[in-house]
Amino acid sequence: MHENEHEMKYSTYIYVWLALVVLTWVTVAVASIDFGNAAVFVALLIAAFKSSLVVAWFMHLKNESATIKWMVATLFIVFAIFIGITFTDYPFR
C-alpha cells in the first residue's frame, strides 16, 4: 500500500487483544478487593494501561511521526490541567 506504512502482522494484534482481555479480567477481579478510596485509582490505572495499549498498537500511534505524538501529548496535558484546576475548587469548598 503506502511505502511508509509499517509491515503489520496479525499475530501482534492478537497478543495485544489477549493482554486487553486479561486486563479486563484483572480489573473485574480486583474490584472485589476493598482498596477503600484507592479503588478508583486502581481501576483508572488499569484503564489507562489498557487504553494506552489500544492507542499505541491498535491506533498505531507508536509508528506515527513525532508531530502526531506531541499533539497527543498536548491533548492529555491540557485535559489533565482542566481536571486538575477544577479540583482547586471542590475539595476546598
Binding site: 484546576i85 482547586t88 475548587d89 471542590y90 475539595p91 476546598f92 469548598r93
Partner: peptide, 10 residues
C-alpha cells in the same frame, strides 16, 4: 461560590 482556594489560584 467557588472555593477561595480556587479564586486565589485563578
Amino acid at each position: 461560590g467557588q472555593s477561595s482556594t480556587a479564586s486565589i489560584v485563578f
